[in-house]
Each structure stands twice: as structure tokens, then as C-alpha cells.
Simulated scan of single mutants.
Amino acid sequence: MHLRRIHHAAIICSDYQVSKRFYTESLGLRVVAEHYRAERRSYKLDLALPDGSQVELFSFPAPPPRPSRPEAQGLRHLAFEVDDVAACKAELEARGIAVEAIRTDEYTGRRFTFFADPDGLPLELYEAPPAASTR
């Protein structure tokens, strides 16, 4: 088996319209497809990043909350690679989104920070290595 990359991450949101605006307008993800599944009373929104990876956004009637303690078992956070963490942090803050202070990864020396989506899902901005930067 040879796994090549992450194809998508799936997120179930509590308020579909709020999360759709957040991921498309605040984060700038491109809508690939949007489907309403009447039998499930559920939306499925496929959102793309420039490299082709995707975020799938789902709505379901009354989804149960997920425990969200920092070290709870399960997916810890979703990280997006960016060229300039400080510039992205400033852009998010200008849109009214709270962003933690920028830290430096002790092993890679790369900068990163965290913020949250409308349901409190931890999202990370992680700076690309200089060779991968498009600056």
C-alpha cells in the first residue's frame, strides 16, 4: 500500500449556513459541489484547497456534540499549510476571528497558530518550508 496524501477531511457542523460562510468567505475555500440529501435532511458541501485536497462540510438534524477537551481522543485538529502565518493571522483577525499567538515548532522551526471554526473545531495554520513557499 502506498498512501499518497490526504484527500479530504469531513466536518459535521451545527449550523450549515454559518459554517458554509466561514469556510468559503473567511477561509476562501472554493465550492466544488453542494448537494441537499432530502432523505437525510442533510447538506454535503465539497470545498477545495488549491492543491486539490478537500474539506467536506455536512449538516445533520441535531448532531450530538463531540467532546472537545484539548487532549480528547480522536481528531485533534485540522491544519492548513500557508506561506506566511503572520499575514494569514492578521487577515483572520481583520475578519473578527480570534487567533492565538504565533508559536514556533520546536522540531521544525516553522511558525504556526490556532483558531476555531464556528463549532469550536480547532484549526491550525502551519507555515510552509521556505523551499515550498510561493513568495
Rank of each mutant, 00 (worst) to 15 (best):
A79G: 12
A98Y: 10
R37E: 11
P61I: 01
D117W: 04
R40W: 13
G109N: 03
A86W: 00
D83V: 01
E34A: 15
F60S: 11
E39V: 12
L45S: 05
P50G: 12
E81I: 00
F114A: 08
E127C: 09
A87L: 07
K89N: 00
L75R: 04
F112R: 05
L47N: 10
T113R: 05
G96P: 11
A62G: 11
E81L: 06
P50H: 09
L125N: 05
G96F: 09
E124H: 11
R110L: 13
P130Y: 09
D105W: 03
A94K: 06
F112K: 04
F114E: 12
Y36V: 07
T113F: 02
L45Y: 08
F112G: 04
A94M: 05
L49R: 06
F114D: 07
A86Y: 05
D51S: 13
Q73G: 13
L47G: 09
V55Q: 08
R40A: 15
D105F: 01
P63F: 11
S59K: 10
V55E: 02
H35W: 09
L45F: 10
Y107K: 13
A48K: 08
A87W: 00
E81S: 03
E124K: 08
H77L: 11
T113P: 08
G74C: 12
V32Y: 06
G52L: 09
R37T: 12
Q73D: 13
D83N: 03
Y107D: 12
R41A: 14
D117N: 06
A33D: 15
A116C: 10
P70Q: 10
R95P: 00
A128N: 11
A101T: 10
F115S: 07
P130E: 10
S53P: 02
E100L: 12
R111Y: 05
S42G: 15
Y36M: 10
E71F: 13
D119G: 09
A33C: 13
P70W: 04
E81H: 07
L121V: 05
R110A: 06
P50Q: 01
P70H: 04
Y126S: 03
D83G: 06
L45T: 07
K44A: 15
R40N: 13
Y43E: 14
T113D: 03
A72Y: 11
L49P: 06
L78H: 02
D46S: 15
A116L: 07
D84A: 06
A72F: 05
R41K: 15
E106D: 08
F115A: 03
H77Q: 09
S53D: 08
A131T: 15
R41M: 06
S53L: 10
V85F: 02
E71P: 00
G120R: 12
E91I: 01
I97K: 00
Y107I: 04
P64G: 12
A116M: 05
V85A: 02
A33K: 15
D83L: 03
E91F: 06
E71G: 00
I97Q: 06
E106C: 06
L92K: 06
S53M: 08
D84G: 02
G74L: 10
